[in-house]
Amino acid sequence: RRRVRAILPYTKVPDTDEISFLKGDMFIVHNELEDGWMWVTNLRTDEQGLIVEDLVEEVGR
């Protein structure tokens, strides 16, 4: 599965499916959606939700 790492921290918008995360958090990407959004699991918190791909970088497989 594709893995990405947060290059900046992010605080979710209330009442959305987004998740908050810290710089350096690692994610497993489950689905890539329209407009640059991805459905992921945060490996640090085990939380699932939406993040925007502009805030992450690819991690070598």
Rank of each mutant, 00 (worst) to 15 (best):
V52S: 14
G49M: 00
L22K: 11
G60E: 14
Q48A: 11
T45E: 00
A6Q: 01
V13H: 14
V13Y: 09
R1I: 15
M26Q: 11
E57A: 07
E18A: 04
L43H: 04
I28F: 09
N31C: 09
V40L: 01
R61Y: 10
L8V: 12
R2H: 08
L8H: 12
K12P: 10
V40M: 03
E53K: 14
G36Q: 04
G49Y: 01
V13A: 14
T45F: 03
D15R: 08
A6H: 01
V59N: 08
V29P: 00
I51K: 00
S20Q: 02
I51W: 02
T11S: 11
M26F: 12
Q48N: 09
T45I: 02
V29K: 05
M26S: 09
E18M: 05
E18V: 06
T41N: 04
L43M: 14
Y10Q: 05
N42C: 10
T16L: 00
I28T: 13
Q48H: 12
D17N: 12
I51L: 08
Y10V: 03
E34R: 15
R2L: 08
I28G: 04
I28S: 10
M26V: 13
L22Q: 15
E57S: 07
E32D: 13
L55Y: 15
T11K: 09
P9R: 06
H30F: 05
T41Q: 07
N31I: 07
K12W: 02
V29G: 02
I19G: 01
D54Y: 08
V40T: 04
R2C: 06
P14L: 08
K23V: 09
A6W: 00
P14W: 05
G60M: 06
D25P: 04
W39N: 09
D35P: 09
Y10N: 06
R61N: 14
K12A: 13
T16G: 05
H30W: 09
D46H: 14
F21H: 02
D17H: 11
E32L: 13
T45H: 03
W39I: 06
D17F: 08
R3Y: 12
G49N: 02
V4R: 04
V56L: 04
D17L: 11
D15H: 12
R61Q: 15
G60D: 11
P9F: 03
G24D: 11
R2S: 08
N31T: 12
F21E: 02
D54R: 15
I28E: 15
V56K: 03
R44Y: 04
I7T: 10
T45W: 01
V29W: 00
Y10E: 02
V13M: 13
D46A: 15
